[in-house]
Amino acid sequence: MDNKAHTALDAIAVKIERASGNVPPLLHEIRHALALLLDHGESTCIDLKSMPLAPGEEERIVAALGSGEVHAEVDALGLSEIAETAFPGVWVVSHCDERGAIQARFIEVTQVPDVLRSQHSDIADGLARLTTRLTVDG
């Protein structure tokens, strides 16, 4: 769409009043999960796709959780963004495809999301590659 078309659309006075009402309950669910993690060490994962959310509500949830100390990216089958929120132990994990489109988005209430851990078979592959390189290089 060109800029002219954008201007024409912007000229239409559309006032969107949409809300599913699911944002506050979800934030309470996260609060309960955080207490569970603190008291019993039990992790919780919430799939944001499982909720009926109005346009903009997912962004509202993420904005309400804020930004914390840790941001990481995993480059495997497209980028995954793992960000700790302003509430330690609450993470937003977004899995994107190779075009950057979000394939799945989770709120993980845990100490470290699993996707950040090095995996046993990848470590084994890495060990084999390093061993080969040292053998070849002498």
Binding site: V74, A76, L77, H95, V115, Q119, H120, D122, D125
Partner: peptide
């Protein structure tokens, strides 16, 4: 695809 990619 790595193991981590597989988990994703």
């Amino acid at each position: 695809v790595s193991r981590r990619g597989f988990l994703k």
